[in-house]
């Protein structure tokens, strides 16, 4: 019998505000850790090469592709997954409401990428131009919308978020 036993690594993470201490294989991706071990199924696999962005999460407030992030390289970081965008009762954030209200998505599989890229953009630039929106969304592929409805959704989100702050 050949065994695939590996050494394990101990990591400590805060995911959507909740503390986790985990013993993991050093080779596991953050995507697989989130999906398979911790049941955060909202983070999606699309390519495993970092090109499509369906696996996007935030690590310490910055977008990151979880499929090409080794979980063992992370410790004492704050991770937000798409599930962390709404509150515990399931109330959507203004950002999510905008994407839903304006038919930003079709199949919605790329939602983690589009939502986090938009969040990151609007935190820096609350009132972006179309061109700035496109640049911000470059990191995630959408195969359904031709990006037209996503740009509309980001603009709506910009308005929605500033309205909710004022």
């Amino acid at each position: 019998m050949e065994d695939l036993l590996e050494d394990t690594v101990l990591i400590q993470l805060r995911i959507n505000g909740k503390y986790h201490e985990l013993e993991i294989s050093p080779s596991v991706s953050l995507l697989d850790l989130l999906r398979d071990e911790l049941n955060f199924k909202g983070t999606h696999m699309g390519c495993m090469t970092g090109h499509c962005g369906a696996c996007t999460v935030m690590i310490n407030g910055k977008t990151a592709k979880s499929c090409i992030t080794l979980a063992s390289t992370l410790s004492n970081v704050d991770i937000t997954t798409i599930e962390g965008l709404s509150d515990e009762e399931g109330n959507l954030s203004p950002l999510q409401e905008s994407f839903w209200n304006t038919a930003g998505f079709q199949c919605g599989y790329c939602a983690p990428g589009m939502l986090f890229l938009t969040k990151e953009l609007l935190e820096d630039n609350p009132n972006p131009t179309d061109d700035e929106i496109k640049t911000a969304l470059e990191g995630t592929l959408c195969r359904c919308t031709g990006y037209q409805s996503l740009i509309r959704a980001v603009k709506d989100a910009a308005e929605n978020i500033s309205a909710s702050k004022s």
Binding site: K41, G42, L85, G90, L92, C107
Partner: peptide, 8 residues
């Protein structure tokens, strides 16, 4: 549409 935007 609520399922995809909320990750559920």
């Amino acid at each position: 549409g609520k399922g995809p935007v909320s990750g559920r």
